[in-house]
């Protein structure tokens, strides 16, 4: 593994080419997964903004989520 930008871009391009070469039905299944994830993220983001559950177990660790119990 390397942090050389040219290598990173090259590997990204290779991944895109491999994905593009897959059968259409398989790519559509990937697209369905992408959509479901996008909707889940949007719903989560929306509920966070509503303040429905500001300090849940899986809420991101932020200074305002940490409580001093000591």
């Amino acid at each position: 593994m390397t942090f050389a930008m040219q290598d990173i871009l090259k590997s990204k391009r290779a991944l895109r080419e491999r994905l593009a070469a897959r059968p259409y039905a398989e790519k559509l299944r990937l697209l369905e997964q992408l959509r479901e994830r996008s909707l889940a993220i949007a719903a989560r983001s929306s509920s966070d903004q509503d303040g429905a559950n500001p300090v849940s177990d899986d809420a991101p660790l932020r200074p305002d989520n940490l409580q001093d119990n000591g």
């Binding site: 895109r16 790519k27 559509l28 697209l31």
Partner: peptide, 13 residues
């Protein structure tokens, strides 16, 4: 969805 036929999956809703 049409573009995904030719490219890598293109995210859409």
């Amino acid at each position: 969805v049409g573009a995904t036929f030719y490219l890598e999956p293109v995210a859409t809703l």
